Amino acid sequence: MTYLIDAWLERPHPYLRILHRETGKVCAELEGDALEELRELGELDLPSLSSAEPPVLKEMVRDLFLFCYARALRPSAEATHA
């Protein structure tokens, strides 16, 4: 599978999406708190996002997918207070 990174980080409501290249389907999306967490962790590497080198982009997409899945597996705040 081939993916595209669609990121608009310098706007009032920044976002980053991973799209399936052939279908345009959104496979992962990060906004708000998730983007802030990535920045705090040092995992949001702006030069890598604008790289034309396939290995660099492949690593970035892999790391973004892993981050999204890890966030999805965290217990929600509501569940921990129940």
Rank of each mutant, 00 (worst) to 15 (best):
I5L: 08
D6I: 05
D6H: 13
A7C: 08
A7W: 07
A7H: 11
W8Y: 11
L9F: 12
E10D: 14
E10V: 08
R11Y: 05
H13C: 10
H13Q: 15
P14L: 09
P14G: 11
Y15E: 04
Y15D: 03
L16V: 01
L16H: 02
R17W: 02
R17S: 09
I18R: 01
I18Q: 05
L19N: 07
L19G: 07
H20E: 13
H20A: 15
H20D: 15
R21H: 13
R21E: 13
E22D: 13
E22F: 07
E22I: 05
T23N: 10
T23M: 04
T23E: 11
G24R: 02
G24H: 05
V26A: 09
V26Y: 05
V26I: 15
C27A: 15
C27S: 12
E29F: 03
E29R: 02
L30I: 02
E31D: 07
E31R: 08
E31M: 09
G32F: 11
G32N: 15
D33E: 10
D33R: 14
D33I: 13
A34L: 05
A34D: 02
A34K: 08
E36F: 08
E37F: 09
L38H: 01
R39V: 06
R39M: 08
E40Q: 12
E40V: 07
L41S: 01
L41G: 03
E43H: 03
L44I: 00
L44M: 00
L44W: 00
D45A: 06
D45R: 02
D45K: 05
L46D: 14
L46R: 14
P47D: 08
S48R: 08
L49F: 13
S50R: 14
S50C: 09
S51V: 14
S51G: 10
E53A: 03
E53G: 07
E53F: 04
P54A: 11
P54W: 02
P54C: 06
P55H: 04
P55Y: 03
P55F: 11
V56H: 02
V56Q: 00
L57D: 00
L57Y: 06
L57Q: 10
K58S: 10
M60D: 01
V61P: 03
R62K: 09
D63P: 00
L64G: 04
L64E: 01
L64P: 03
L64M: 00
F65H: 07
L66M: 13
L66E: 13
F67H: 02
F67P: 00
F67S: 01
C68S: 13
C68E: 11
C68L: 10
Y69P: 07
Y69Q: 11
Y69K: 10
A70M: 13
A70L: 14
A70K: 10
R71A: 03
A72E: 06
L73N: 12
L73W: 07
L73F: 13
R74Y: 05
R74K: 10
R74N: 08
P75I: 10
S76F: 12
